[in-house]
Nucleic acid binder design. Structure first.
Lengths: 198, 198, 198, 198
DNA sequence: GATGAATGAGGTTTCATTCAT
DNA sequence: TATGAATGAAACCTCATTCAT
């Protein structure tokens, strides 16, 4: 139905505006007015599509984490070898200072609040699980290819990979220096490789 | 203009109350009233000791990160060997579900805001540098003891160690399951050992 | 960013309520709540139309002084002779105990603050200049009619006329006696006439 | 008794500090802390000597207006002729930009509040009466000397003189230009002379 | 007498949410 | 659907005043 599609577009439009607003202003400072302004809509219409501010944020986190996961997944599937997949995966993660900054700014805000909001934790857990499935797949393939250490349990290695990635990107973000993006990317890649290789 | 010397104990009392309040409620929800209630003081007295809410938060971050660093440092100095120091260091980091939760909840809040507040970034950078000095020292000692890989640059290894620690603790925090604390601790330890050992 | 065009009538309504509130309570005592109550509006709506309390006051002074000036000007233009204009002018100035009291109460508050607030001083200066133009015109006409002393400089006489008017009305206001309004009016008129006539 | 004298000195010290504070900050902005700081005393001691803030202000107005009156009176008594007295009187009124500014700033604040506070009005009325007695005396003397117009009623002329003085000084204050002090002084003098002389 | 820490009422301001149009 | 005016709860902050020391 047309109405449904239009409606869905409006929601996406608002979500994207919310993403931009959050990235620019942060959780504490952002207001529905700013989101509405970003979406070039009135404040009222935002409430028409979402019950309240929280509903926007929940849906935004869902939308955002799914998008990131799908990107990473697609990047991995472009390659056939374990090393190729790993590299492609990390390339899609460390995509650019601009994109990493805007995503991680918002993502950090969500993580900070996830401690108190169950809905966020659940969404984030799904995100973790999805990402873990990618890593797990790569590790398994690498072991089949006999280039990754056999003693590694793919399931318990995935969180470590995630940890190194998140930890590096957070440190990079805190450094506020774009030129270090490549440095952290390489460090991250080397560490993961070192961890996996025989 | 006469400005009175404020009692240091009161400041500490308020900072600790702020820490507890932040851990319980989060940045967004916490109010000066809650902080004052936690400190069993009136709202006014909080403003008597701190110019404004922001000043409390800045000083809290400073106090908190310094305290953590000193703890980690003290733990490391209790041991003489690289492996002993590393283990002691990680024990002081993964101290207990309760302490890790309360600290990381607040710390995540700070990281989230550090993107927009220079003061927080600067304090955090100092914290990073301090922590890095501990890791660097351990790596160097391990190399002297001929048990850690020589090809590792101590300076560029430190951030990876930090990344694994932070990344693991964040994932643990998001899991909201105390029983996983030990699991993440072990994974973290194993990964770091694997990274460092010959 | 979409900024909505605020209804002019509402602004006027709030300004008038602010005028009444100021006249009743004075600068120090008046609150936004009182202004809102006077306007029969909620506190929030006042902030919807004005950025802050100061903005209301600035606009109020501007509105008030312009209104007074236009009244005086209109009164003067009703007459053709110098004496007629002067009388009409003073009639519009000494209009009634009620109106003079409410205006001068507020005006005195503004003058008191104008010492520290440039914006007020500027608005008041414009008011002075406008009022001076009226007096100057009357003096010039009177000189052309050969009934006012030629040696008077119209430009330097205007401030003296203003001084006598303000000085008299302040003294009347301080007396807190409505029945003296007519007395001060006559004294003021006589003094100005004495000053101007040959 | 020593205690009484010490006590009186403290009160004066506080009053003078309050005068300076009011002149610098204005009624709205001034706080007891600022007054105490100006007096180089603690906040507590101010409350020891005065019941509350209002009591300070009332006594300040009383002290200030009396001081001004005595000054004007003394200046007048230095001369013997009507014109000499008038000139001396006006010299003591238009004393200097600095002194006039600090006094009129505070005085305007008091006038503004006098509308609502009976105590201020009463003190001010006494000040008016005192000042009027000076003017009345000068006018009477001038009439005896046959240089002032006989038809003037000394009692009703005094308020006009006061009006011209206050009106001029307020306009000068609002101009915020020290160099106009002499100009307004001369205008004021000329107008009064013109009003009084035959 | 003197201090300054502590209180708490009350002010300005922000903003999610509602609702008439 | 869409708007934006209106509401009111709740935040931060100020400051006169009190009172233990």
């Amino acid at each position: 139905m047309v109405r449904y599609k239009k409606s869905e577009e409006r929601r996406k439009q608002i979500l994207f505006a919310a993403f931009k607003a959050l990235s620019d202003y942060g959780f504490e400072t952002v207001t529905l007015q700013i989101i509405a302004d970003n979406a070039q809509l009135s404040k009222g219409v935002v409430h028409y599509y979402f019950d309240n501010k929280e509903a926007i944020l929940v849906e935004l986190l869902e939308w955002l984490t799914l998008k990131i996961y799908l990107k990473e997944r697609a990047a991995t599937q472009e390659q056939d070898t374990a090393l190729g997949k790993l590299e492609s995966f990390l390339n899609s993660v460390f995509i650019s200072p601009e994109e990493n900054r805007s995503f991680y700014r918002v993502y950090l805000d969500f993580l900070a609040r996830a401690n108190r909001v169950l809905a966020y934790r659940e969404i984030n857990q799904r995100f973790y699980d999805n990402c873990a499935s990618i890593s797990t797949e790569i590790v398994l393939l690498g072991q089949q290819e006999r280039i990754f250490a056999e003693h590694l349990s793919p399931e318990s290695t995935a969180p470590i990979i995630r940890a190194i990635i998140d930890g590096c990107l957070i440190q990079w973000l805190m450094s506020d220096r774009d030129e270090l993006h490549a440095v952290f990317k390489k460090s991250c890649y080397d560490a993961i490789i070192h961890l996996l290789m025989k």
